[in-house]
Structure formats: C-alpha cells, structure tokens
Nucleic acid binder design. Structure first.
Lengths: 224, 224
DNA sequence: TAGATTGTTAATCGATTAACAATC
DNA sequence: TAGATTGTTAATCGATTAACAATC
C-alpha cells in the first residue's frame, strides 16, 4: 500500500472557497465514518454535498495526494489529514467578547466544543456584566484579554458586541495581541494585516434568503 | 435632473456574490446617511468596504442605472432602490424553528427586526418546549407551521434545531409550504428546488478563522 | 485481468479589474 | 469650462468542469 504524499510545507494558502469546502468534506467524512464506511469516492462525497466530483478531487489535491486510484479515499486517513490541514488536530481556546444574547448562545453552542474550540474566557465592557458568572466562567473587562493572550491561553475571539461598539472593542482586541476575530457585529472591522477576521453577518444572510425567495430561486447556498 | 432607469422587470437573478455585496452597500449607505452625507462615489463606498470601485459600479449596474456622472450616487435614492431590489422594502415575517440557546438568541437579535424581519411564531418538536412562552410568543409544534404558511403569515424560517433532527424538521417545513430556510444546523439539507436555503455554519466559519490564523493570513473575509 | 477511480491537463465559465468615452 | 465620476467594454484573473492516461 502506497503511503500518500502529504501536503508540502511551503504550500500556498488555499483559496477561501476551497477551505470552506474542505470543512464540509471533513464533516461529511465523519458522518460516513459513523455510518461504518471506511472508504469513499470523490463522486460519493460530492453527491452528498451537491459538489462536482472533479471539484472534490481538485480541492483535496491542492493539499496533497490522499486518494487511491480504483478505491477512492480511506476515510480515517483523510479525516486525520484534513484535521491537520485545517489546524483542528489540536484544541483552540476561544474567548467570547460581548455577553449579550448572541454571546451567551455562542457559549453554549455545542458545535464549537465538538470541533476543538472551547471557550476559556469571557469579556465585556459593560460594568453590569463584569463579574457575572456563566457556566463557571466570570466575565472580565476587555482590558484583561491582554493577559490571556500573553499567557498564550487565547488566540481567537468571537466578537458579539453591539455594532456601535464593535470597532472600538476590536481595537482593544488587536492591542491585546489577538490573532483572529470571528466578527458577528454588522460592521466592517478595520484591523492590521496581521490579524485575521472572518465576518458572520446574520442580517446579510437573511437578506440574501429574502432575495432568493422573492426571485423564486430554489436550491441551496453553501455559505459556510 | 435625470430620472435614473430602474432595474428591468425581466432582469436575471444576480450572482450570489453580488447580492451579498449589495447588502453591504446598503448598510454602508445607511451609515453615511446617518453621518449627514447625501451623495457618495463608488470609490468612497468601495474604500469603506475594501471593495474595488469598478466592482461597486458593476454590481450596481447589474440592477440598473443609479449613478450621476460627476456626482456619484444620491444616497437616499440608492438606499430606496437597493431595499427594493433586495426585497426588504416591506416586512418579512419570520418563524424560529428550534428554541435551544441559538434559537432564543435569534429571537432577540436586533439586527433582524431593524431590517424588517420580525419574528411572529415559534416552533419546536420538543414536548417540554411546546407551550412555553418567550417574549409573548408561545412555542407550537412544528406541524402547526402549516397553518401559518397557509394564512400567508410566514414564508421564511430560521432553523436552529440539533444536527440530527435538522433534515427531518426541514422535511416538515417543506411540507408546510415554507419558501425559505435559514439553516443553522451543521448539515446539508436536501430540499426541493422550489425552496431556498441559505446555510449559516458557525463551525465552518470558525474553522476557516483557525486555518487563516494558523497560516498567518491577515486581512478580512466578508463572508456575508 | 477488468472495472473503478484517482490526479491532472485542457477547456470552459464566471468574476474582477483597468481603462476610457460619455456625461454632469 | 474643468474636474469628477459614471456605465461599460476589454483584459485579466481565478474557479469550475470535462476528459483521460495512470494506477490500483
């Protein structure tokens, strides 16, 4: 049995669309694994996600050779490889910044923990929130994030503060040395190039759905 | 003053990426309007969103001629046009299906109501949830959605049930005659082509952020 | 072996950007 | 008018899909 070549260390950063689909592949592979399957073809994987089989092969080939001609992909092996590629073969401590309704819902969201993201600290600038305890974690002022980052406890933060506070708090996060921000506030954050931001904009998504319904478009959009 | 031509009634459906950006343009225009501005150029609008000015003009031109050479776009007029294009020049009643932590957070999310999406009904299949009241709305069994759709009270639903129930509940929503589903469950829903689905997958987004941080990519992704 | 399926090349398709005549 | 800015064409860039030799 051939040992598949792993992704080269100097590989370029994958296009955004590829990364999003690889996350979907990983989830679907886990699903098939739970069903007791051990191998899967690009056609089978693609059909389950409404993605062309050539696209599946090309996406995976971006990171290396994982398949076996005539057989397909060995599920266990590909899962391990994709986890490593996505950087979720280890845990990611996560801070929640802003403990309104959305922030508290994010705390309890099982999908994060089950994929290695666990919430280790809560921050808010509202004096009435500071000191409150949720699930055994005490809300601290955002300034305190600096210590958590310095201690390498936290690199990622979910930002769920009101829109009019978002840029100001993001500046605090940046000053604290955070590496990545998952931004739920409906504003375009301005951050230095060393900081990664992924925006999750629920209103934009819902507006898109309304547009599709109004224009009688059926089908599925995989937004991520 | 020239009256700009409106989008033609037989216009094709806009590409997904265009619709997402138009939502961002609308929000940004509203921001500039609050600042007291009355006109805005494609360069100014683009810079505030890190989008190329030619892209801004091309996106808007997809729907019609809204600009004035030498002047730019009249903010009030463009806001009205974009609201109409996106279909949010009127309210959209919205049902929440699944009242776990996320569903209850969505209920209280101000970004929805402020953009014309207001929550008019709550549904869940969990007997312990049915009959409970949140913000004056009583949770009904998902079967009851059929009546709300028939009465034209609801066309859109946010689906925030656990992953293993999502497809089953989505089938119920489809049977009820729903037009659009905003899917928060981390599964790929299978629905007939007449039903629109927009997927919001928080874990996929967070995985993308982890990938970017791990690969030292800075910058901002406008995911929607 | 025969059948299945990969990785990859070439072809197609669509999206982004630059450039500029037309216009205010 | 001179300056600014649009809408749109042409050029570029990137993403998707089809096709197939190589491989198990």
């Amino acid at each position: 049995m051939r040992e598949p070549r792993r992704e080269s260390p100097a590989a370029k950063v994958a296009p955004k669309a590829v990364v999003g689909r690889v996350s979907l592949y990983l989830r679907q592979l886990e699903y098939f694994q739970r069903q007791g399957r051990t191998t899967l073809s690009s056609t089978q994987l693609g059909e389950s996600l409404a993605i062309n089989n050539a696209q599946v092969r090309k996406d995976l080939a971006f990171f290396g050779q994982f398949g076996y001609p005539g057989i397909g992909y060995r599920i266990e092996e590909l899962i391990a490889a994709l986890r490593h590629i996505l950087g979720i073969d280890h845990d990611w401590p996560l801070a929640i910044v802003g403990l309104g309704n959305l922030g508290r819902a994010l705390m309890k969201y099982r999908g994060f923990r089950s994929r290695g993201f666990h919430i280790v600290a809560l921050f808010d600038n509202d004096p009435s929130k500071i000191g409150q305890t949720f699930d055994g974690l005490t809300v601290e002022p955002v300034e305190a994030l600096r210590k958590a980052v310095a201690a390498r406890t936290v690199r990622l933060a979910a930002l769920s503060v009101p829109a009019d506070a978002a840029q100001r708090v993001a500046d605090q996060l940046v000053a604290s040395g955070i590496h990545g921000i998952l931004n739920f506030a409906p504003v375009t954050l301005s951050v230095p190039p060393s900081v990664s931001v992924v925006a999750v904009d629920l209103s934009v998504q819902l507006e898109h759905l309304a547009y599709k319904v109004q224009n009688m478009q059926g089908g599925i959009s995989y937004v991520g």
